[in-house]
Simulated scan of single mutants.
Amino acid sequence: MPRLTLYLLFFLALPLQAAEQERADWAPVFAAQDAVGTIVVVDERQPSKPTWVHNPERAAKRYSPASTFKIPHTLMALDAGAVTDEFQVFPWNGVEHSYAGHNQDQTLRSAMRHSTVWVYRGFANAIGEPKARAYLQRLNYGNADPSVARGDYWIDGKLAISAREQITFLQQLYRNQLPFDVAHQRLTKDVMIVEAQRDWILRAKTGWEGRYGWWVGWVEWPEGPVFFALNIDTPNRLDDLHKREAITRAVLRSIDALPAAD
């Protein structure tokens, strides 16, 4: 199939969205947490599918995806055979980590929940950089560059993605429109579940590079999904990490995308 035809099919598959609107009323939510950052929200429960943003300039800037990359990395690992299913056990080698959740055997579900770097480092080694680069280009994921001098390329390397690009990726995953087996896309979404109630499901992943942090995902409602991608500075490092979810949940509650806090 000609490349031009493939590009046209790709763009036609993307959901139609209204022009982006800046939300000045979300600035106090960031100020209340003494945080600098951005959030992009697309509410597909509404026919117009509005796109709202706080700090649009930052929403266009690319940052290391950090552990939000575990979402596409899971797809890559499943496709490459580095993991077979959610039941495969990855034995802990006994090396102590600062986070207790990493000091145990892992499955795909626990590795996503605990953001277990050593499991995904194993996936990266099994996949290799040339194949990782090809996967990233197929996904059109940020700058699609897994180069790294030292460390993990999704944290320490050149790979970078913007909040707006995170949203586009998540929308395609939600619709099983990524260039991967549909069963693998469904499994990835299953292990992303953070919270669920009778009427809604929250699927999301945090990320932290050290200087800044992410929370990206969506809330599924019977009327449709609400996608979000938040990125904030974390000058106080660990002490700032709770702000990712606090800000996002406050923003989502402001548009009734999450129920009010108890």
Rank of each mutant, 00 (worst) to 15 (best):
L4D: 07
T5W: 11
L6M: 07
L6W: 14
L8E: 09
L9K: 13
Q17M: 13
A18S: 15
A24G: 06
P28F: 11
F30V: 03
Q33G: 02
A35V: 04
G37W: 01
T38C: 03
I39Y: 00
D43E: 00
Q46V: 04
P47D: 05
K49M: 06
V53K: 00
H54R: 07
K61L: 12
S64L: 09
T68P: 08
F69T: 00
H73A: 04
T74I: 12
T74S: 15
G81N: 10
V83N: 09
F90M: 12
V95H: 14
V95E: 14
E96V: 15
H102T: 01
D105W: 04
H114L: 06
T116E: 04
V119G: 03
V119Y: 00
K131M: 11
Q137I: 08
R138I: 00
G142W: 10
G142H: 07
G142D: 00
N143G: 11
A149F: 06
A160I: 04
I161R: 13
I161E: 08
R164T: 09
F169W: 02
F169K: 05
L170G: 10
L173S: 08
Y174M: 02
P179Q: 01
V182L: 12
L187E: 12
T188K: 13
V191L: 09
V191F: 01
M192V: 07
V194I: 08
D199C: 07
I201R: 15
I201A: 06
R203D: 06
K205V: 14
G207F: 02
G207E: 04
E220D: 15
P222M: 07
L230D: 01
T234L: 10
L238K: 15
D240E: 07
R244W: 06
E245W: 01
E245I: 03
A246Q: 15
V251A: 06
S254C: 11
I255E: 03
A260V: 05
